[in-house]
Nucleic acid binder design. Structure first.
Length: 484
RNA sequence: GGCGACGUAGCCAAGUGGAAAGGCAGCGGUCUGCAAAACCGCCAUCACGGGUUCAAAUCCCGUCGUCGCCUCCA
């Protein structure tokens, strides 16, 4: 079995074949940095983080490119309205590049919290203006674009394949659709590849057609091919961008170069809030920072991965709470395992477990190979957890080597690939002072218990519980853990 | 109006032709001084109606419902 990926272009799962053996190039549409990132961003970038991690796990050398859009997207329409970054700059009375810098930092902060590995290249649109102008020139030369009043438009009618990704035909985009009539355009579906800057538009660059700024699809076509070549392997992004953004990306570069843009289109489904799409324009979006104020970052990541990337995810506080409790269960096994590891010995791995490790690994690869089946992969970790709990609570001696091997499996599958099991769980990383104090209280409670003073022992337990320290009595003595 | 996705237990969510994963919640049990944690057990005729098939949650047709795209949005 080899890796199968659902290719949105063909609407089928296909075996993954890289352009260059052993290498994989991934481009994912990045954020426009004019506000804090929301849960929808979390789903996309966690999803593609998993893909990058899994490719690396399989031994590929990955180049993951994710742009930063710091210019050019308008508030209303492709051609009307105000640049969102400019508007924010005006509102906050700062330079546009201060807006960009602020929210770019915010974005990476959030991604770091969610344990998303940073992209290998985070190219910015404003750093690639000359390349974008070159592509516009190429489109004019090949007759796929025309100039009008300082702006340059892509001529949709000149390229019959327009619509092949989204399954749309230009003729069908008729009444009901809100297409603004722009007298400069030959066809209402034509879109700007270069836009003349009106007076007062701060973000502007000189060009053969006068001062202006790039069209809003151009940067992705240009930066993806600049860093990954053409064709490259995987283009990713959110499903809501399939039209017109992704469609236009393809049109520009393929019309200009007469060569395929990329081989696999991988688009993730959206996040809804109580069943309704979360959107900046709807004002119902939940920022990652808000979610982080109420939930552990790993809970959010776990929540995202517990549904498939191509399924819509409905965000609710209840669902997040339930995910958090599920994750706690997973951590319980790992915690117990690592505690037991502290004073275990024995050099031999239990052969029955050696067998299990192979089975879990194989099954994990099997479900991940099927279009990145993270929900099934997580289910496997729960199965493993049950077996581990049974083993560790059985009272049987378990060799150090076996415990280490189990821990290694958690680190490999849950840590390296899924990124939901940290190398150090919170309690382990906690201060020696706290640990010492808690152990002292456990000792005092133990004395009360031995004196059958249940009132006192329960008082200690209850008060610690109120502070978030949970005590658990077992045959091996009393353990403690922090509840989140 | 056009295009597309989805509808699986109280909730979240896999499974896309051959005995319905997993998690949360709930119930019963084991363990415990009592708890907690853990373990064992229980808990779904897969929106509805037809059809194809030896066999359908899975394929086809229809109905109802939810959502998305067609305007910036991850």
């Amino acid at each position: 079995m080899t890796l199968q990926i659902y290719n949105f272009m063909t609407r089928r799962k296909e075996e993954f074949r890289p352009v260059h053996e052993g290498f994989v190039g991934i481009y994912v549409c990045g954020p426009t940095v004019y506000g804090h990132s929301h849960i929808g961003h979390a789903k996309v970038y966690v999803s593609f983080d998993i893909m990058a991690r899994y490719f690396r796990y399989l031994g590929y050398q990955v180049r993951y490119v994710q742009n930063i859009t710091d210019v050019g997207h308008l508030t209303d329409d492709a051609d009307e309205g105000e640049d969102k970054i400019l508007r924010r700059a005006r509102q906050e009375r700062v330079e546009p590049m201060e807006v960009v810098q602020t929210y770019m930092r915010s974005f990476f902060e959030d991604m770091d919290a969610l344990n998303v590995v940073r992209p290998d290249i985070s190219p910015r649109a404003t750093c690639h203006i000359p390349e974008q102008i070159e592509l516009v020139e190429a489109l004019l030369e090949t007759g796929h674009a025309y100039e009008a009043d300082g702006s340059v438009y892509f001529d949709v009618a000149s390229w019959p394949e327009y619509g092949k990704l989204s399954g749309r035909k230009i003729e069908e985009q008729e009444e009901g659709a809100r297409i603004t009539i722009n007298p400069d355009k030959k066809n209402p579906a034509d879109f700007a590849v270069w836009k003349a800057a009106e007076k007062g538009h701060i973000l502007r660059w000189p060009s053969p057609w006068g001062p202006g700024y790039p069209g809003w699809h151009l940067e992705c076509s240009v930066m993806a091919t600049k860093y990954l070549g053409q064709p490259f392997d995987i283009h990713g992004g959110g499903l809501e961008n399939v039209f017109p953004h992704n469609e236009s990306e393809i049109a520009q570069i393929e019309a200009a170069t007469d060569e395929r843009f990329c081989n696999y289109w991988v688009l993730n489904n959206m996040v809804t809030v109580d069943g309704v799409k979360m959107g900046k324009s709807l004002g119902n979006f939940v920022t990652i920072k808000e979610a982080l104020s109420r939930h552990d970052p790993m809970t959010i990541r776990f929540f995202v991965l517990s549904s498939h990337y191509r399924s819509p995810t409905d965000f609710s506080e209840e669902a997040l709470d339930a995910a958090g409790r599920g994750l706690e269960r997973l951590y319980g096994s790992v915690q117990l395992l690592r505690e037991r590891l502290r004073d275990a010995d024995g050099e031999e791995v239990d052969p029955a477990w050696a067998q299990k490790f192979e089975e879990y690994r194989q099954e994990f690869v099997k479900v991940m190979d099927d279009d990145f089946g993270t929900p099934q992969a997580i289910a496997l970790l729960f199965d493993l957890g049950r077996e581990v709990n049974t083993l560790l609570n059985s009272g049987q001696p378990v060799s150090r080597a076996t415990l280490e091997a189990i821990d290694g499996l958690y680190r490999e599958l849950g840590g390296t690939v899924l990124g939901i099991i940290p190398d150090e769980l919170v309690q382990q990383a906690d201060s020696e002072l706290v640990g010492g104090l808690v152990r002292m209280l456990i000792e005092l409670r133990q004395q009360a218990r031995e004196a059958r003073d249940w009132e006192e022992s329960d008082r200690i337990r209850d008060q610690l519980a109120q502070m978030g320290v949970m005590l658990e009595d077992g045959p091996q003595g009393t353990r403690w853990r922090l509840s989140h």
